[in-house]
Amino acid sequence: MPITPDDLDHLRRCVELARQALADGDEPFGSILVAASGETLFADRNRVRGGDATRHPEFAIARWAAEHLTPAERAGATVYTSGEHCPMCAAGHGWVGLGRIVYAASSAQLAGWLDAWGVPPGPVAALPILDVVPGAVVDGPAPELVDELEALHRARFPDRGTSAQ
């Protein structure tokens, strides 16, 4: 399914959450959970700076949804996120049975940017969501937001090489 204007509005909220995370000294990621009705149920941003590398917003969404929604409500909900889920978050998404995922920038794009800036890869492979959750419904990236996200991630590494563009 193509990314709609409503999807872009939700993704812009995720980018704003990512901006808040960066301003707080964290990695720039933000995500929201939207019910089938269109109501935003949960919103969060990355919170790993304290040392807990599992405090990704997508993982927080999976935990919250498992505690607060029925299986049918989870399946009908959409997760919007600034960056494609990492394998940990994709697995959480799959295990709790959440619905569609819409992301603004892909893991491959992020990995390319980081590589171009000379940032060493993280400890977990940057796998596409569908490699972890083959049955997931996934849409992204959103070209309208990719440059803005690259700039947010670039701001984390001001002393590194040049952009991947």
Rank of each mutant, 00 (worst) to 15 (best):
R47H: 14
A77V: 10
A164E: 10
L33R: 11
L145Y: 05
Q109P: 00
A111L: 10
A62R: 02
R74P: 05
F59D: 14
D115H: 13
L33I: 00
Q165P: 02
P28N: 05
T40S: 11
G118N: 13
L149Q: 09
A91Y: 11
R19G: 12
H10T: 01
C86A: 12
R156K: 14
D159A: 14
D24E: 15
A91H: 08
S106M: 10
L110V: 15
A104F: 06
T4K: 06
G30C: 06
E16V: 06
D6S: 13
T162P: 12
R63F: 04
Q109M: 06
A111Q: 13
A111T: 12
L114T: 04
A125I: 01
Q20I: 01
A108N: 09
H85T: 00
P28C: 05
E67T: 04
E58A: 15
V96T: 13
I101Q: 13
H93C: 02
D159K: 14
I61P: 10
A72G: 08
I61S: 05
I129R: 00
H10V: 02
A142L: 11
Y80A: 01
A21Y: 02
D139I: 01
D115V: 02
T54G: 15
D7H: 14
P123N: 11
Q109S: 03
G50R: 09
F29Y: 00
Y103R: 00
P57K: 04
D9H: 14
P120G: 07
G97E: 07
L69R: 07
S37H: 01
T78M: 01
A75W: 02
P141N: 12
A125S: 10
L17Q: 04
R47V: 03
R47S: 13
D6K: 06
A65P: 13
P87Q: 05
E58F: 04
L22K: 15
L41E: 05
G161E: 13
A43S: 15
P158E: 03
F157C: 02
I101M: 12
A136L: 09
G30W: 06
R100F: 04
